Amino acid sequence: MINVEDFVKYLKNINIDFFTGVPDSQLSSFADYVEENCENIIAANEGNALAIASGYNLSTGNYPLVYLQNSGLGNIVNPVTSLTHSEVYSIPVVYLIGWRGQPGVHDEPQHIKQGAITLDLLNLLDIKYTVISNESNFDELKEIFENDFINQLNCGKSVAVVVSKGAFEEYKIKKENNNILSREKAIQTIVDFLSEKDMVVSTTGKSSRELFEYREELKQGHGNDFLTVGSMGHSSSIALGVALNNPNKRIFCFDGDGAILMHMGSLALIGSMKPKNFHHVMFNNSAHESVGGLPTIMSDIDINEIILACGYDKVYNAKSIDELKDVLPKFIEDNGPVFLNIDVNLKSRNDLGRPTTTPLENKLDFIEKLRS
């Protein structure tokens, strides 16, 4: 395993001292260290991070590092091929990529395809890479930089360190907020207020896992819920497509602050389309809680004003169970698009399970329920 402090100190010695990206659970030790000790920008999405990194390189001549889960490679294909590539602006970048869905390593279904094509995709993008694992050591990684990667960067080309599970030694910083309400309790409370005909599209991460487990506890089945296990930031657009084509059903989107920030243009589209059956819920802990808990910028902006400016009819807010129970009847009965901002804490159960149905089974059950 590699000590993150040794790695980052070495990077700084070779003028790689600016970090930006989107947190990933397999990079949590690295991300925690740079958040506490370095110039670090947690970007809205991976493409944004690469653009920020490009601006840094243009301004300083130094090499930036962009960290991301391999699922985020899709978000950077365009800026890699049309901005940073050596055949365009030749902007050198160091990528640190968490390898989810690595072949031969058990992982969740949404990571399997991306994991299988990760290295092929890097080859297609002309990004030279090395893979580190729990058997790697710092001296080996340093040698790769000194014998190859630094020369690649000096020639205007990008390089990548692909990180397998357990490659970094543990490093954690304390993360918390002052909110009293848990996301799981908020989800359970909303579900209790929904009718048998109401449909839910839930975002990736622990929100969908908590929703699935509560349906199991209630023995309700899962046909009312589309669990967006991947494609972070797109749940609201999926819900919009469902709402527009099922005007006689209320459609609820269970969203997270990190997911909303990732693709905020969807808010303007929802507001402009004005589906009357669209009910948007944000569980706001101002953090990427499902992948380590590093902060988002949600606490720095006025999301209520943004939502209204995008064309939503109303915004509701809740910080406690009592407040939530008070606003839910109005929120549910209002014509959409309406938005409910619920402040929640960073806590989740250590024994939180994962969906026991496959994504395909979930899709088919959801379709059947929609048509009933």
Rank of each mutant, 00 (worst) to 15 (best):
E216C: 08
E146K: 10
T204V: 03
S237D: 06
A167G: 07
R209G: 00
E143A: 15
G166L: 03
F149D: 01
T204R: 02
C155I: 04
Q152L: 07
L194Y: 08
E217P: 07
S207P: 04
S195Q: 07
F145K: 02
G221T: 00
K172S: 11
F145C: 05
F193Q: 14
F168Y: 14
L218S: 11
F212H: 00
E213G: 04
N224G: 10
V161K: 13
S237L: 14
L211Y: 11
F193S: 15
G156L: 07
V163Y: 09
L141K: 06
N154K: 15
R215K: 13
V229N: 05
E146S: 09
D192Q: 13
V201N: 01
L218R: 14
I187S: 10
L218I: 12
E170R: 14
S182H: 04
E140Q: 14
L194K: 05
R209P: 00
V159D: 03
E184I: 15
T203Q: 03
G205Y: 03
T203K: 01
F138H: 08
T228G: 12
G221D: 01
G166C: 01
S202N: 07
H234A: 08
L153S: 02
G205C: 07
N246K: 14
L141S: 10
F212N: 01
K165S: 08
N178P: 05
T189W: 09
G223Y: 02
I180G: 11
E143P: 10
N178W: 05
S208D: 03
N179E: 03
R215G: 03
N137L: 06
E216H: 02
K219W: 07
L211N: 06
R215E: 06
S236W: 08
Q220G: 15
N151Q: 11
K174E: 12
V229L: 08
S158F: 03
K172E: 08
H234P: 05
G221R: 00
R183G: 05
A167S: 12
S236Q: 11
S195W: 07
S195L: 06
